[in-house]
Computed example of a mutant assay.
Amino acid sequence: MKPLIVLITIFTLILAVTRIVYGQWDIYRSGRVAMAVMLIFTAIGHFKFTEGMILMLPDFVPAKREMVLATGIIELIAAVGLFIPSLRILTAWLLILFFVLIFPANIHAALHNVNLEKASYDGDGINYLWFRVPLQLLFIAWVYFFVIRTGR
């Protein structure tokens, strides 16, 4: 829920700023900034809640701590890549792939009631997926619409 709040809040704020500064709404810039800020927010979670995120990974995944930290770094790199015109489209496609690849960890976390902030097994469980599936699809659609579709 928190990443969605960050995404929508930053989008609305930057949209208003672009209207004031440039005299017009710039939804594409606002969308990119919002996604970048959301990625930074979630990346911080990888470093702050490492132990909980480790619990999100199935047993067969090796080097769980390194994987959690690496995905946090990937999110930070993607946030920067959204602002580099020559890398923006590639970053967007890789970000969509990233969202697809991390989704099984969310399923695993839901099935095992992982509470990533407490690093415990008393989370929302399967009900979490009713929110997470549409959220993951929203992230993918967001990146596609605000970056790939427009070529900006």
Rank of each mutant, 00 (worst) to 15 (best):
P3L: 07
V6F: 08
I10G: 04
I10L: 09
T18H: 09
I20F: 15
V21L: 07
G23N: 11
Q24H: 10
Q24G: 05
R29S: 05
S30L: 10
F41N: 13
H46E: 09
F47G: 01
F47I: 05
F47A: 15
F47D: 12
F47P: 06
F47V: 11
F49L: 09
M53R: 06
V61Q: 10
V61W: 04
V61Y: 11
A63K: 02
A63Y: 05
R65K: 15
M67Q: 07
A70M: 09
G72Q: 06
I73S: 09
I73H: 07
I74F: 11
V80W: 04
G81I: 14
I84W: 00
S86A: 05
L87R: 02
I89W: 05
L90G: 06
A92F: 11
L97V: 14
V100F: 05
L101C: 13
L101F: 13
F103L: 10
A109F: 04
A110D: 03
A110Q: 01
H112A: 13
H112K: 15
N113G: 01
N113Q: 09
V114L: 08
E117I: 05
K118R: 15
A119R: 10
S120R: 08
D122T: 04
D124A: 10
I126W: 07
Y128T: 03
Y128V: 01
L129A: 12
F131L: 10
R132Y: 03
V133P: 02
L135Q: 12
L135M: 13
F145V: 12
G151T: 03
